[in-house]
């Protein structure tokens, strides 16, 4: 079965991203397909490449990126929500005259920034949309 996943909260503040991660991992282990994971609202903060949690804690952004690499997941960050909150890739940084960018990317299998249409598409194309938020 094809699942779409929507993550509406950032890491650490709320459990939503952790639960979404555990759910996604379990679904993949069972042989289900993850059509897309879409990050919206403060969920875009899950895509930062510059978080530095203490050694004895999980790195939420990194574990998403690792899972994406392992399973070739499509991790999409909403562009409007991301730009508001200062999550930028190289292209968006150039467009908005910022000299730095901070989107977690990993040999093409990490996060990518795109429009809300990607969320709608997940809702339409996936068999189930599962939402994690506050």
């Amino acid at each position: 079965m094809k699942f779409g996943i929507l993550v509406n909260e950032g890491p650490y503040q709320h459990q939503a991203s952790d639960t979404a991660y555990q759910f996604t991992k379990a679904a993949l282990a069972q042989g289900h397909e993850i059509f897309r994971v879409f990050f919206y609202h403060d969920g875009v903060y899950n895509a930062t490449s510059i978080s530095a949690p203490p050694q004895d804690d999980r790195n939420v952004a990194q574990q998403w990126a690792d899972l994406a690499e392992e399973h070739n997941l499509d991790l999409v960050v909403c562009v409007a929500a991301a730009l508001r909150r200062g999550i930028l890739d190289e292209e968006q940084a150039q467009k908005s005259s910022n000299t730095t960018y901070n989107l977690e990317t990993k040999e093409g299998n990490g996060f990518r920034i795109s429009g809300l249409g990607q969320l709608l598409e997940a809702g339409i194309q996936a068999d189930r949309l599962v939402t994690f938020g506050d």
């Binding site: 409007a80 929500a81 809300l116 249409g117 709608l120 339409i124």
Partner: peptide
């Protein structure tokens, strides 16, 4: 909170999908 505003943004984008 921002949920109402950002929900409305999805609704507007979603209108183009003819659902």
């Amino acid at each position: 909170t921002v949920y109402a505003l950002e929900s409305l943004e999805v609704v507007l984008i979603g209108a183009a999908f003819d659902q």
